[in-house]
Simulated scan of single mutants.
Amino acid sequence: MALTHNFSVQYDRRHTDSQMYSLYPEDVLPMHLAETNFQTAQPIMDALASRVNQGMFGYVAESAELGLAVQHWMASRFELPIEPEWAQYSPSVGSSLVFAVQAFTQPGDRVLIQTPVYHAFHSLIDNSGRMKAENKLILRNGRYEIDFEDLERQLSNPRTKLMLLCNPHNPVGRCWTKEELTRMAELCLRHHVFVVSDEVHADLVYEAFTHIPLPAISEEIAQHCMVTVNPSKTFNLAGMRSSAAIIPNERRREAFRVALINNKAIDRPVFGMVALEAAYRHGGYYVDQLVPYIEENAKLVGEFLREHIPQLELIQPEATYLLWLDARKLGLPPDQLAPYFLREAKVAFRDGASCGNGEGFLRMSIGFPRAVLEQALHQMKQAVSKLDLN
């Protein structure tokens, strides 16, 4: 019997240890965080319950199970063959990026990012003693594109040693095409810049698009890159602190492992490992049902904004449950956009400025049951109606 999941069920997570619901008063809908409000997949809960029944939770031995589970997922979902030993444990994708900066660059080196991008990309470079370089994405006809001329200029700087790629891209929702990835890979290879590809949202690509893992572009770039994956976004498992860094090149893999050891990040969490393995072994059905639900949520937002709040424009997403909203026509100062919606709509957004190159934009999570999303939209409509838009 095929498993099904009901994503419309609403859960009361207030007065729990939920970070999402702890930052704002009870009357606020928290749509600022990259986390869904869906219960995780049943096989994951069953595996965790079975582990609890053992009653002993000592140090977890390193084993091949993590690599085998990641190998299964990458092959079954993305047709990417990897060897189990390529997958290195890491507490999170964010941690993997920090360790990669330590492993593959030196203080004073330049680390390149494409903005606007997930805010942690900025802070991890700013706090590392490295210099941040930006390849600003171009918004053209409602869609973000790569400025390849500037990208090569940034990569050709001899101090640029590392590029942090976000694919699919958070927050602009692009699923980079094979042609775009190939061109980026060729430029990085030409200028000897190692690439770390954050692919944490890879599972959440909409029907008309296809996620291509960076190593699939060529064997040459596979040996010159690292890919970070994590079931956290897909299965609502961020608190489990388990992810994997896929590194085909043995020398690079060992350098990354040294960074893990130096940061005392090598020990694997009991429940995190159980959850990751169950997700990647048995969670395919959940993703197959989650993605259409998320895509319908995105369509709902787009239609509602066009009809009721045309001054708030949705940048059409190709992936993820994070939407990028162009709020510049509302006439509010950029630094007042998020505070205005928090105060007047009781909806919390992430300020686009925190992503760099995103002033006047808002990031909105739609990983919610549809009824909650509809409530948020109506509250947003009421808030905008109070503005003088003449």
Rank of each mutant, 00 (worst) to 15 (best):
L3Y: 04
T4F: 01
Q10I: 15
D12Y: 15
R14M: 01
M20C: 06
L23W: 13
P25Y: 13
P25H: 13
D27I: 06
L33P: 02
E35W: 08
N37L: 12
T40D: 01
A41Y: 01
Q42N: 05
A47M: 05
Q54L: 12
G55H: 12
Y59W: 11
S63K: 14
E65N: 10
V70I: 10
H72S: 15
W73G: 06
W73V: 05
R77Y: 12
R77F: 12
I82Q: 00
E85C: 04
A87P: 06
S92V: 01
V93M: 01
S96Q: 12
A100G: 15
A100E: 09
Q106N: 03
Q106M: 05
V111T: 02
H122S: 02
L124K: 07
E134N: 07
K136P: 03
I138A: 02
G142L: 07
R143V: 10
E152H: 01
L155P: 00
T160I: 07
L164Q: 08
L164H: 12
N170D: 15
C175A: 15
E180C: 06
T182R: 03
R183H: 15
M184F: 06
M184G: 00
E186L: 04
L187V: 02
V200W: 00
E207G: 08
H211V: 05
H211T: 10
P213G: 11
L214W: 02
L214K: 01
A216M: 09
A222C: 01
M226D: 08
S232P: 01
N236D: 12
G239Q: 03
R241T: 03
I247H: 05
A259M: 10
K264L: 10
D267Q: 15
V270K: 02
F271N: 00
V274P: 04
R281H: 14
G283D: 07
Y285V: 03
D288T: 08
Y293W: 13
I294W: 14
F304V: 03
F304C: 08
R306F: 05
H308Q: 14
P310V: 09
E313L: 09
A319S: 13
A319C: 07
L325V: 05
R328L: 12
G331L: 08
L332T: 06
P334N: 03
L337M: 10
F341R: 07
L342K: 15
R343D: 14
A348H: 13
D351S: 11
G356T: 08
G360Y: 07
F361V: 07
M364L: 11
S385I: 06
L387H: 10
